[in-house]
Amino acid sequence: MSNLSSIAVPKIDSLTLAVSEADGLVLTGTIASRDPNPTIGAYFKKVHEQLLATKPSKFTVDLTGLTFVNSSAVRLFIDWAMWIGQAGKTPPYKLHFRIARSITWQQTNFTALQSLAPNVIEIESK
């Protein structure tokens, strides 16, 4: 059993981050900070490290309520996929991104990302 809820969630005005064992991570709002890495990136890293310890087969990240991200934030998701890819020959878990068909940035960026890391990333369009 993981303990994701014990990881301190960064407080960001435009973004809500909610995590649960059942639902994974749910992001709602926008990411328009010029450098989201020290806050959101650091949080993703802690979640990833927790998942390495608990070894789930996959972890869901629900982005259907995330309406805008800047390019710095796109890199946060790429970094997460990289960490998994670098963790061993067999990915320790898969990142399951739940995305919205109606949100262009999600379709474009996650389709591209999955094509480059198909063994790490799953996409569910809603």
Partner: peptide
Amino acid sequence: IRRNVTGGIPRAMLGLAR
């Protein structure tokens, strides 16, 4: 995107490309 996935040096071009 690939440059980031493979750990290459990111350039400030992703925004323009998007």
